[in-house]
């Protein structure tokens, strides 16, 4: 009886499993195989070579990786600092107003990311909205704020704001109010409660929000292209260039594999360091 059920279960899961393999695993395998092909080949019937990985180190591609990871980290930290107070208020203080903020943030996602970024370009460019007003009404002439690293980080913060905010709200709302009150009753100051109670108990939300924003920001390129004007070249830019202008699929694949491996390892490391079950009290 059990065997029949087991077989039926496997059979039922088969179509979806095949679909998952085709959609997620197969492209990754193709990229992995291409990454060990010699440069500038368009099929996989060649002797494997690690030339592309050597190029990554010798031709300075690691700098692009550094910029991508560095700016993603900066955006994640900035987002955490900005979002935590707002998420706390949404989870614990605001009542009906929380819904209004949620709708306001979600509505921005209805507009394409590129269009929103172009909006910022028009606002921040020389002779744009801000510098135009400043010149007309204050007599201050400025060059605009575009084409530098801070503005790229600003773009990442702006675009990935909801991806940090909502997991944080969820995480903070999981902290029972009575536990905070008990800590206060036992003599803990607000700062102590924040570090001893709020942060550890909201950790699932913090980890999910931080991972989402970091992973998405590390692979983003619209911000560096539109707001940064390629003041710095990020890894995603390099991958795109290798696949398109460079017509070097194997180099693009190698760069993509390096990015995937690094981000995957960081995510795995972060998740393994945080004992989510322990925090939730599911395990002692």
């Amino acid at each position: 009886m059990d065997r029949i059920e087991e077989r039926q279960g496997l059979l039922s899961a088969l179509p979806l499993s095949v679909l998952m393999v085709l959609i997620f695993v197969a492209p990754l395998i193709v990229v992995a195989v291409f990454s060990i092909m010699p440069p500038r080949v368009f099929d996989v019937l060649h002797m494997p070579s690690f030339e592309n990985y050597r190029i990554f180190f010798t031709q300075g591609y690691y700098r692009s990786l550094g910029w991508a990871l560095g700016m993603a980290a900066m955006a994640t930290v900035t987002l955490f600092v900005i979002c935590y107070p707002l998420a706390y208020a949404m989870a614990k203080i605001f009542k009906k107003f929380t819904l209004i903020i949620t709708i306001a943030v979600v509505v921005t996602l209805f507009v394409s990311e590129n269009i929103r970024l172009f909006g910022w370009v028009l606002t921040l460019m020389k002779g744009g909205l801000i510098s135009g007003y400043l010149r007309t009404y204050a007599g201050i002439d400025i060059d605009g704020w575009l084409y530098n690293v801070p503005v790229i980080v600003f773009g990442l913060v702006y675009v990935y704001f909801p991806f940090m905010l909502f997991p944080l709200v969820q995480g903070i709302s999981m902290v029972p109010e009575e536990v905070r009150q008990a800590a206060s009753d036992l003599g803990a100051s607000r700062t102590r409660i924040f570090f001893e109670i709020d942060l550890p108990l909201a950790m699932p939300g913090i980890v999910v929000g931080s991972l989402l924003t970091f992973v998405l920001a590390a692979g983003a390129m619209a911000e560096s292209k539109l707001l940064g004007g390629q003041a710095v070249i990020v890894m995603a830019d390099e991958i795109e260039a290798a696949f398109t202008f460079g017509q070097n699929w194997s180099l693009g694949s190698a760069l993509a594999m390096i990015l995937i491996l690094i981000i995957g390892s960081l995510a795995f490391f972060a998740l393994s360091r945080v004992d989510l079950d322990g925090i939730m009290g599911r395990r002692g």
Partner: peptide, 30 residues
């Protein structure tokens, strides 16, 4: 005088133990 400055303490209906801490860490908290 706020709760954390009073020489009083309460056992809550829900007990309000710290779920992420061990028994010892809970007792040692104050």
């Amino acid at each position: 005088v706020p709760a954390n400055k009073r020489p009083t303490c309460m056992v809550f209906q829900s007990l309000a133990l710290f779920p992420h801490r061990t028994v010892g860490q809970n007792i040692e908290f104050p």
